[in-house]
Design a protein around this nucleic acid. Structure first.
Ligand SMILES: [Mn+2]
Ligand SMILES: [Mn+2]
Ligand SMILES: [Mn+2]
Ligand SMILES: [Mn+2]
Lengths: 226, 226
DNA sequence: TTTTATTTTTAGACACGCCTAAAAATTAAA
DNA sequence: TTTAATTTTTAGGCGTGTCTAAAAATAAAA
């Protein structure tokens, strides 16, 4: 009954989960193709297969979404991914820009005992090194409340960095350089309307300019007005 | 130039290494087929491919052996396998009978930094939980000297258990039951010629009977005469 | 040495996961 | 609403790693 899925199938489920977002929106073939670095025709093939396995609900030309079973598996893969990333950073001193690629491999290791032991070793962390929530053993995900993008914050507000987009190594390295990490407190001083960049200041540091693109990929939580 | 090998190719190299032993004997197609749970025809196919890649030297009907390059890769896979097993036992409290299957998966994770970090975390262990030597970063293997099989020991001698065959979970569980582990000191009291079983005694314990099959799979080192 | 048994290789096939090119359906624009 | 652009699916193919069945080579027995 419980057949093993291939790495590829697991990756598809994971990516559908990410693309469908919290509202469980339908995911288009092309969107998946881009994220999975494959051609649309390959996606169609796989969606048919996952459809037959009842992991995805799929109708021609209408996009796809995860079934309950498919979502459960996706969440489990994400749990493993984020726990491994946390392990690499907390126990092996990897940088937060070095963990994603390895976690992409480790997330496919099949051993419930192993991942639960790692969880315990790390003391049941709630967030991974990029601020993403780690699903618990039962698949519950604690999304951080009142999190918004830095690019949406009002001038004069004071916020705490709680997450960053993990996709780009270049971004993570850049954030290291400008000393922004999870927990950093930022004061928003100004927004330049010409290019939508922002002037922000790290507590006790100099003001600096942050491009729209960077601000978009930083998640923050409101702290207080100045 | 340095293309990635598939899990399957890595497993073939590893198994050829194990079967060819310290003397680098040629390995037969059938021997490989049995160990790899595949049909002989599949083995032939793969040997051709590995031959073309210069990882194996192979001539029809003559068996195969690893090239230097192939051996180097095999040893690296084995290094990873044994380090992961050690990690699981030492850091995550797995039993020595629970680690092999997971290590079969983990040995294929590609990250030099990861495995060297695990090595460091474990303080550069020399032997894995089954007493097998862990190749170092440069591929050097420190085979334990003067190690012999328990079944070859003389009556009245006193030996220390230094390794056990890791292949059978049943054996490892049985050894747990009769309290034999790496480091256990055994005194050989008698050998029953009828079935070649042996009477041995753990320091401060009762005498017990060990079958030939079990004795064959225990490696020991001479301690002293009684 | 001839015959028989065993081992190994070839031949042909299949599932998987991907691809390109072309057709079909959907969506956007005129 | 008809036409054009975009998205998605189908059709056909390819490399990998496996299999079965049959042929060939080698090893063992007579
Ligand atoms: Mn990641
Ligand atoms: Mn992450
Ligand atoms: Mn093992
Ligand atoms: Mn071992």
């Amino acid at each position: 009954m419980e057949k093993k899925l291939s790495h590829s199938e697991e990756n598809y489920l994971k990516e559908i989960f990410h693309l469908s977002g919290e509202l469980h929106e339908k995911v288009s073939t092309n969107a998946l193709a881009e994220r999975l670095n494959a051609k649309a025709s390959s996606i169609t093939d796989m969606l048919k297969k996952l459809g037959e396995k009842k992991l995805v609900s799929y109708q021609k030309y209408k996009g796809c979404s995860l079934t309950q079973k498919g979502e459960q598996i996706a969440i489990y893969i994400i749990r493993k991914h984020r726990l491994w990333e946390t392990f690499l950073v907390n126990k092996l001193n990897f940088g937060w820009d070095e963990v994603h690629d390895v976690a992409e491999q480790l997330e496919h290791i099949r051993s419930v005992k192993l991942i639960n032991s790692i969880d315990e070793l790390l003391n049941f962390p709630k967030y991974d090194p990029h601020g993403d929530p780690i699903p618990d053993k039962d698949g519950n995900i604690n999304y951080m409340e009142s999190k918004i993008s830095l690019s949406e914050t009002a001038v004069k507000s004071k916020v705490e960095v709680v997450s960053v987009d993990e996709d780009s190594m270049a971004l993570l390295k850049y954030l290291d350089e400008i000393k922004i990490s999870i927990g950093t407190i930022l004061t928003i001083h100004n927004r330049i309307s010409f290019d939508e960049s922002m002037e922000v200041q790290i507590a006790g540091g100099n003001k600096m300019n942050i491009s729209k693109k960077v601000a978009d990929s930083i998640g923050v939580r409101f702290k207080s007005k100045i």
